[in-house]
Amino acid sequence: MTCVQMREHKRFKAKKQTRIRIPTPPMTNRTTMNLTIALVVLLLTGCTSVEESTDITSAYRSVWAELYPDTLAGQHAEGTLYGDFYSAAASDTRIVAERRWEKFLSDWMPGNAAFEDASHARFVNWAKLEIQRLRYLKHKNIAAAETTSKRLRQIAADME
């Protein structure tokens, strides 16, 4: 499990913690103590046995944002290739990311399979992999998500 995935787990668990409701009938003191210990252990270890969340409001960070956070400052207008790409890459929850990546591909994936230039082709190909990774995360397929991340990092390395 990568640091990024661990971070995502921790964010998810932190969110989940805030949603804990007191069950009925009320827990015994012993049960409460055990639950608290389990949660602390989970938070401290980033336990790999916990399944990836299917909650689309979970925290999200695109591979692009991990690699190039400086590009996300919003210098490009909405409705432009760069503006829409950077905006999708800057999404911080899965629900927003899914909506933006899908809109990006719907607006910029050429209908007749023709690109207008090199950056158009690069950004569309990158977006396809980002949304693939997002879907793997959503369906708890951590290994496939990680493989897709590696492909993106390799593309980035090839560009350097």
Binding site: Q75, H76, T80, Y82, N112, E116, D117, S119, H120
Partner: peptide, 18 residues
């Protein structure tokens, strides 16, 4: 000269890189 104008036409964006 790639691009131009202010609106997308026939697969050509008015501008891409800045």
């Amino acid at each position: 000269p790639g691009h131009g104008g202010n609106r997308k036409i026939g697969g050509s964006s008015p501008n891409n890189a800045t």
